[in-house]
Every structure is written in C-alpha cells, then in structure tokens.
C-alpha cells in the first residue's frame, strides 16, 4: 500500500468491500479523519477505515497502512526454551507470563498446533516429532482482522513501523479482537484488563534479541497471511479482487 492515497483509491476499496453507500463513505471520511488525525497526525489520516460495525452499529471501513516489519521464524532451530516469551513479558511488562506473551511457544510446545489427539506421536512438539512452532503476529495487511473487528478502533498502525498496536486508551477489554485473529495472536493483559499484542518493540523485538539459537528474525514486512494456515477456522478471507493493497 502506498504511503498516500488519493480519494479514488479509498473509494475503490470501499466499493470492493461493499460499503459504497454515500452515507457510509462520508461517515468513514469524517470519522476516521478525526480518529486517526488525533492519534497520528494528518499524514496518516487515511489509514483508519472500519468495515465492521462500530459500537453503535454503524458500518465502517478500516484500512491500516502496511507494516514495515514482521517477525519470522525457523522452527527447525527452535529448542523450546521459551526465552522469547520471557523476554517479551519480562522486559516489556516486568513480569514473566506465557499467556501475556505476544510470541507464543507454550501452546505448541507439547503437541504442536494441532494440540493433543490420538496419534499425537505423528504430530509436532515434544510428544511428536519434536518440531516446535513459534506463533507470531503476522502484522496482517488489509483487511486486518483484529483491527477490523475492534468496535473501538483500538488497534492501530503505529508509526513509524505501522505495527498493529493496541491503543490502551481506547481498548475497553472486550476481547473481540482475540476472537477475530485467525492465528489467535492477541493476548490479554489481565492486570491492565486490556488486550495486548505484538508491537515489534519499535524495531528491536525483545524475543529476537533473546533467542539462543537464532531461530527468530525481524525482517521487512511481507504478506505472511498467504503462507500460513490459520490455527483454527474462521479466518477472514481476502478476496481475489482485493488487489489494491496486496
């Protein structure tokens, strides 16, 4: 997605995703100008478009500028030490908590993403073929499932990296984003009562720094949503036609 887009592009997107009624469009333009402008300044005011319903049942369109970085991993090198989870929460939150961690190893450690089932010996993880798969946020391109689902516009692209970040001022802790992420990558901070997710640590991801086998990498963003199976059903489909920003 280009840095700046003209109105036509925005209109095209709105059309493609089916909110092309004049009233809706006006609503989006005005609404997001205020929201995004207040947070990031006018240069990014196009980025906040909601397609889902907001808290008042109004249809909106959310488009976030593509992220500039993303975490990738080489699971063959992962030894399941969970120092990445530790770094994520101890160095960002001052406490150790695998459920809070935005990189997720624990849940795949024993049996792999398929969890336990008959024949687990042929699955992944410690009880299977030993492969430990790390789950990381894909910093999805439009339509960003978590941001789209949030009725409070609380998930935003935070410059300069445009990581999809939970704005804790706006988050009310409704946990809808948790249900929306096809990869189950949103964590919940019980102490703050807010959702939390990978922020890319402003370009120096703690997990990458901590990994003792170099299994994790921070790389320029690319669209990983196309390369990975979702952990569970319910992934928001990206239609073929939506070729504007993909």
């Amino acid at each position: 997605m280009k840095e700046d887009k003209d109105k036509n592009t925005v209109e095209k997107i709105a059309e493609v995703i089916g909110v092309n009624k004049p009233t809706s469009r006006r609503r989006f333009l005005i609404g997001s100008a205020i929201v995004a402008g207040a947070v990031y300044g006018s240069s990014v005011l196009y980025r906040q478009i909601n397609i889902a319903e907001d808290n008042n049942g109004n249809k909106r369109v959310v488009i976030l500028k593509n992220a500039k970085g993303v975490l990738v991993s080489d699971p063959t090198r992962c030894v399941g030490c969970r120092r990445c989870e530790l770094a994520c929460t101890e160095f960002n939150d001052g406490r150790s908590s695998p459920t809070l961690s935005r990189i997720k190893v624990a849940r795949n450690l024993n049996y792999g993403p398929q969890a336990v089932q008959l024949g687990f010996r042929r699955g992944h993880g410690k009880f299977g073929d030993f492969l430990v798969i790390q789950d990381m946020c894909k910093q999805c391109p439009h339509p960003v499932p978590c941001a789209t689902a949030c009725p409070y516009d609380a998930i935003e692209a935070k410059p300069p990296l445009n990581a999809r970040v939970v704005n804790t001022e706006k988050c009310v802790g409704c946990e809808i984003c948790q249900r929306a992420c096809p990869w189950d990558m949103i964590s919940f901070d019980e102490e703050a009562d807010k959702a939390t997710k990978c922020t890319l640590c402003d370009g120096n991801p703690q997990c990458v720094e901590a990994c003792p086998t170099g299994s994790l990498r921070y790389v320029p963003w690319r669209d990983l949503t196309k390369d990975f199976h979702p952990r569970q059903a319910g992934m928001l489909a990206v239609t073929e036609e939506c070729d504007i920003c993909h």
């Binding site: 101890e90 160095f91 939150d93 001052g94 406490r95 150790s96 908590s97 459920t99 019980e190």
Partner: peptide
C-alpha cells in the same frame, strides 16, 4: 497457569542482569 511471576526490580535492570 495463566498468571505471572513478578519481577520486583525495574525491567531494565533485570534485563541487564540476564
């Protein structure tokens, strides 16, 4: 468990030590 183990010290000092 779904909880946390708290680190009493400042997270920067903890990271430095680790």
């Amino acid at each position: 468990g779904s909880g946390s183990v708290n680190i009493a010290a400042d997270q920067k000092d903890w990271k430095e030590l680790i």
